[in-house]
Computed example of a mutant assay.
Amino acid sequence: MDTETVRARFDEQLRQHAAGGERSGPVVRVTRERGGWDGVVWSGLTGTTADAAIAAQTGYFTDLGRGFEWKWYAHDEPADLGERLAAAGFVPGPPETLMVAEVAALPTVPVLPDGVTLHRVTDDAGVELMLRAHRRAFGTDPAALGAMVREQLASSPELIDVLVAVAGDGEPVSAARLERHPGTDFAGLWGGGTAPGWRGRGIYRALIAARTAIAAAHGVRYLQVDASDDSRPILGRLGFEVVGTTVPYTYGSAGGAG
C-alpha cells in the first residue's frame, strides 16, 4: 500500500469533504447537528492565518455554549499548529496513530472465546449495553458517545454498525463501531475497548474481523483506525499500516468522535 497516496486520499475524502462538514474560511468543522460531534476535522492554514482561524472557531463554539475538539494531524500546516492550539487554551489528549488497511487483505471470520457472542445494536437497549461495555473497558463517562450513537441510529442507521461482545452471564465485555462514508474509499473503526478481565483472549481481533466482513459486503476499500498504543501492535499484526499520527485537542467540555 502506498501510504502517502492513501493519506492524501484520506485527507481529501474524510477531512476536506467530511460528511456533514461545513467550510468556515480555511477550516472544515462538524457540529452535533450535522455530524454527531462538535469539532474541526481539517484546516488549510499557514503561519499567518492559523491564529485568526483558531480564534474564529473558539469564538463560534463558545457562542454556542459548547466545547469542541480540533483533530490535529502531524502533517497539518503550519508545523507548530499543535503548539498554537495549546497556547489558545486547548488541552491535548493522548496521541493516536492513524492506521489503514485494505479490506481485501484482512480476516473476516471472528473467532470468539467460548461463551462470548456478538450482538448488533439496533435500539436504545442495545445502546445501553454498549455504554456498559464502554464503562467497563475505559472507566469513563460515555454520555456524549451514547447521545451521538443514538442520533446516528435514528438519522442514518444504514451507515453505522455497532457490535457488543456479551459473555455467557449477560455482561457486555467489549463494544465497537463501524462507520461507513458513502462516496469514499473508507470506513472507520471506533471503540473496541475490552473489560480488563477479558483482555488477551482475542475479542478485539474478533470485533475487527466482524466489522471487516460488514465493510467488505458494502464494497469498502480501506478501513481506518485512530489507534491507541495498546491497539497499535494488534492492528499491525493484522496488516494495518501507519499512515500518520493525530492528537485530539479539546477546548472546553467536548465530546469527540471516539
Rank of each mutant, 00 (worst) to 15 (best):
M1L: 09
D2H: 08
T3N: 11
T5D: 03
R9C: 07
R9S: 12
R9T: 11
R9W: 06
F10T: 05
Q13H: 00
S24F: 13
G25D: 09
R29P: 07
R29A: 12
T31F: 08
R34N: 10
V40W: 06
T46V: 12
T46R: 04
G47T: 15
G47L: 08
D51E: 14
D51W: 00
A52Q: 12
I54N: 10
A55S: 12
A55T: 13
G59L: 09
D63P: 02
W70F: 14
L81M: 06
G82F: 09
E83R: 15
L85F: 07
V91G: 15
E96Q: 15
V100A: 12
T108F: 02
V109Q: 10
P110A: 02
P113Q: 02
L118N: 11
V121G: 05
V121W: 02
T122P: 06
D124T: 13
V127N: 00
E128D: 14
E128S: 09
M130H: 06
L131W: 05
F138A: 11
G139K: 06
G139L: 08
T140A: 01
A144T: 06
L145I: 04
G146C: 09
A147P: 04
Q152A: 10
S156W: 06
L159I: 03
V164C: 07
G168S: 05
A175D: 05
R180P: 07
P182W: 05
W190K: 07
P196C: 11
G197F: 09
W198N: 09
G202N: 05
I203V: 13
Y204P: 01
A206Y: 05
A209M: 08
A213L: 01
A215L: 07
A217R: 14
H218M: 04
G219Q: 01
R221T: 14
Q224W: 00
A227H: 05
D229Q: 13
P233Y: 10
P233S: 10
L235R: 00
F240K: 03
V242D: 12
V242I: 15
V243C: 15
G244S: 14
P248T: 10
T250I: 15
A257W: 15
